[in-house]
Structures are given as structure tokens and as C-alpha cells.
């Protein structure tokens, strides 16, 4: 299990990186933590001509708060964000969801931007981002643009990022007033990718539920506040809409059941912890 050959590039800045991407386009892959990428390269599932290492670009490593967002530089590690003292108060959903990402060891290297760019349908960060209605900051030689999470991930490990663009930051909306949050996940073992993960944001008069691990990308549904029976119906509808598929670990039926049952648990829990 050894990777193919490639050329290694270590740009010193975002500008150098996007210049690099402009030149090599689809022949280049960005590496930051490398946790998903290198594993796939070792299996030779990924072959790339150029590997562009952005892990050491300081300008990609920051956590900033503005009026209503937490903006996280793409190369900020998951461990850095999780250890950020403001996290629990400004984003209870991230504080609850991020401990499910891999392990102590992988979060130390894995980056926030890497997870978003990789867009695994079972990953926690894309699920949190879409549930919160966040966005992704992209940069190319031509300029910058902001894409909503909804528009960013278009399918299975597929995003609307163009080959000459890089993810430079991820913007998570800060907690909404009066909202309660919950994140629940069923994985085969601690730290494994989700069989089904649910993220809930409950406010007076509204429920937002995101589901990961079932469809080709995380999906969100928003309802007006629902009574018990209506909630079950809504979750059932959502479950059938997403469908899901079978794999070696779990069936589609099981995944749909988890949407109904974990979804319900999460909504009730989020409702409880509204402030």
C-alpha cells in the first residue's frame, strides 16, 4: 500500500496556492491534514500529479468572530476549533458534534477546511455547516466568492468548488437567540464515520434537522414547530425522501429508522436546551 508518484508543492501563501491551482487545475490536489486524502492515496484510489500542501500557511489558520458568524480558516485543525474556549457558547452544535469527528489523534491534524472540501456524506462538519446554514469561502486567482453550504456540496464527495479554487474559510453562523441544539450520531465504533448523524436546531416556532450518512450529501429539513404525531410523520417523510442505501455495515431501512428515532431524540433534546 504505497502511493503513486507525484510532485510536491508547498506554496507559502494563499496567493501562491491559487496561482498553483490556476496553472495545474484538475491535476492538483490540496493537502492539509491529509487524513482522508493520504489514506486514499495509499490505497491508490487517488492519483494526482501535484500535491499542494497548505498546512503551513498561517493565513489559513484562524478563528474569527463577526456579528453573526464564526469564521474558521481552512487549515485550522479540528482540535484547535474544538479547544477554542468560545465554542460551546457561540456554537453549541459544533461543540456537541465535533467530538464525534474521528479521534483525538486525527483531530489534531485534520482540518476544518479539509473536511468541508472532502465532503464525505458521513462527515460531521459538513452536516453541522449545512444545518446551521453556513457558507464556504472560496478563492481563485480570479477572486473570492462565498457559497452557501447548501450549494457547496452537490453530491457524493462532490462540490461546486472549481478546480482553480481553494477553500480558504468556513463560516458557521453563531448560535441563534432562543435556540437549542443537539447532535446525535450512530457509528459502528467510537470515531467511525456516521451510519446516521442528526443535527437539530430548535427555536420557538421552528425546527431544523440535518441528517448525514444517509443520502449522498447531508440534507436539511425545516418545519414549523410540530406536535408529537406530526413530528413522527414529518420524520417519516424525511426518512423516505432520503432513502439511503445498504452497505456492509447497515441497511437503508436501518438508516431510515435512525432518522426517525435519533431525529426525534435530537429534536426533543434541542428543545430542552433552548435558552
Amino acid at each position: 500500500m504505497k502511493p503513486h508518484s507525484f510532485e510536491y508543492l508547498r506554496p507559502a501563501s494563499i496567493e501562491e496556492t491559487v496561482a498553483c491551482l490556476a496553472r495545474h487545475s484538475e491535476d492538483a490536489r490540496i493537502i492539509a491534514g491529509g487524513l482522508s486524502l493520504v489514506a486514499m492515496m495509499n490505497f491508490r484510489l487517488v492519483e494526482t500529479k501535484f500535491l499542494v500542501d497548505v498546512a503551513n500557511i498561517k493565513a489559513l489558520n484562524y478563528i474569527r468572530v463577526d456579528a453573526d458568524h464564526i469564521e474558521v480558516g481552512a487549515a485550522t485543525t479540528q482540535a484547535q476549533l474544538l479547544a477554542w474556549p468560545e465554542l460551546a457558547s457561540l456554537s453549541p452544535l459544533l461543540a456537541k458534534g465535533m467530538p464525534f469527528i474521528g479521534h483525538f489523534q486525527t483531530r489534531a491534524r485534520g482540518t476544518v477546511g479539509g473536511s468541508i472540501a472532502h465532503s464525505d456524506p458521513s462527515s460531521e462538519l459538513p452536516l453541522c455547516l449545512i444545518t446551521l446554514g453556513g457558507s464556504v469561502m472560496l478563492r481563485s486567482k480570479a477572486g473570492s466568492r462565498e457559497v452557501t453550504a447548501e450549494d457547496f456540496q452537490v453530491g457524493l464527495m462532490q462540490t461546486s468548488r472549481r478546480p482553480d479554487e481553494m477553500v480558504v474559510a468556513v463560516r458557521f453562523p453563531i448560535r441563534k437567540k432562543g435556540a437549542g441544539y443537539s447532535f446525535l450520531e450512530m457509528a459502528m465504533r467510537k470515531g467511525d464515520l456516521a451510519i446516521c448523524a442528526v443535527a437539530a436546531e430548535v427555536r420557538d416556532g421552528s425546527i431544523r434537522l440535518g441528517v448525514g450518512g444517509v443520502a449522498d450529501k447531508p440534507a436539511v429539513r425545516e418545519w414549523k414547530d410540530l406536535g408529537d404525531a406530526a413530528l413522527d410523520e414529518a420524520l417519516n417523510e424525511f426518512a423516505w425522501d432520503l432513502g439511503g442505501s445498504d452497505d456492509v455495515h447497515a441497511t437503508a431501512t436501518f438508516r431510515r429508522q435512525l432518522i426517525r428515532r435519533l431525529g426525534r431524540r435530537a429534536i426533543l433534546e434541542a428543545r430542552e436546551c433552548r435558552n
Binding site: 493520504v38 498546512a55 483525538f104
Partner: peptide
């Protein structure tokens, strides 16, 4: 996790790291 080392003090999987990194 057998190959775990510390990189700048933090744990890292050496098998998911290229030497040049």
C-alpha cells in the same frame, strides 16, 4: 494508530504523513 508519533507535540499518524511534510 500503531505508527502514531508526535509532530510539534501533537499526535500524528506517520502513515498518513509524507516525509517531506
Amino acid at each position: 494508530g500503531a505508527c502514531t508519533i508526535r509532530m510539534d507535540g501533537l499526535p500524528a499518524r506517520a502513515c498518513l504523513t509524507f516525509a517531506i511534510q
